[in-house]
C-alpha cells in the first residue's frame, strides 16, 4: 500500500453506469418473469433482447471505453489476483482505481453467465409452441430441447452470482468500510495510486 492520501477521482463514466444499473434492473425483472411470470413470455423475450444489447455494449466498451472500463486495464494476472486476495481481509478500503482484481474476476464471470443465459434462451424450445427461442429451429430440436435445461441452470447460476455480488458489496461496506455503491451512482470514487 502506498502512503499517498486517497483522492476522489471520476472512475466510472456515465455510459458504464447507465449500463450497469439497467442491467441490474433488467436481469432481476427478467429472472422473476422467467420464474413467476405469465405463461406467454413475450415480455421475458423482449427484456432478454435488451439484456443482449447491454452485454454487447459492455463488451465493446471493454475495448474502446475509458481506461477503467477496459478489459486490458482491469483483468488481473494470477499473481496480482493472489496478492490482492491475500490482503482482502484487511479492515481498510481498497481505494482501488476501478475494478479491483477480485471484482474483475466477478465482472468477467457475470458477463459470461449472462451471455450463456442469452444464448441458451435464444436456442431454447420448451415444446409449448408459444415460447420458442428465435434460434431454436436453426440449432435443431435436440439441442433446442437441451437448451431449456441450460437456461434453467443459467438462472440458478445468475441467482448465485447476484447474491455473491451483493454479499461482496456488504463485505466491503461493513468490513472494509468502503462504499462501492455510491461510486457506481456518481462515478466518483476514493482512489489511492499504487
Amino acid at each position: 500500500m502506498s502512503n499517498e492520501p486517497a483522492k476522489r477521482v471520476r472512475v466510472w463514466d456515465p455510459a458504464l453506469r447507465i449500463c450497469h444499473w439497467l442491467l441490474a434492473v433488467l436481469v432481476i425483472v427478467n429472472w422473476c418473469l422467467g420464474k413467476f411470470g405469465p405463461n406467454v413470455m413475450t415480455l421475458h423475450f423482449w427484456l432478454g433482447y435488451a439484456i443482449l444489447s447491454l452485454l454487447v455494449f459492455r463488451v465493446i466498451w471493454g475495448f474502446i471505453g475509458p481506461a477503467p472500463a477496459r478489459f486490458s486495464t482491469f483483468i488481473p494476472g494470477p499473481r496480482a489476483l493472489m496478492r490482492y486476495l491475500k490482503g482482502i481481509l484487511r479492515r481498510e478500503p481498497s481505494n482501488w482505481p476501478g475494478h479491483n482484481p477480485a471484482g474483475a474476476i466477478s465482472v468477467i464471470a457475470i458477463l459470461l453467465v449472462l451471455g450463456w443465459q442469452v444464448v441458451s434462451g435464444l436456442m431454447a424450445d420448451p415444446d409449448d409452441f408459444i415460447n420458442v427461442g428465435p434460434l431454436a429451429s436453426a440449432v435443431g430440436s435436440g439441442t433446442a430441447r437441451q437448451a431449456v435445461g441450460w437456461h434453467h441452470l443459467g438462472a440458478n447460476l445468475i441467482l448465485i452470482f447476484v447474491l455473491l455480488h451483493l454479499a461482496a458489496i456488504l463485505f466491503y461496506r461493513l468490513w472494509k468500510h468502503e462504499d462501492l455503491v455510491r461510486p457506481m451512482i456518481t462515478g466518483w470514487k476514493w482512489v489511492r495510486r499504487r
Binding site: N39, V40, D127, D128, F129, I130, R145, Q146, V148
Partner: peptide, 20 residues
Amino acid sequence: ALQTLGGACKDCHDDYRKPD
C-alpha cells in the same frame, strides 16, 4: 388460442417434466 393451449402445456411441463 395457441397461447391458451401452449400455456397449459407449459404449466405442467414446468413442474413435472424433466428439463434436461
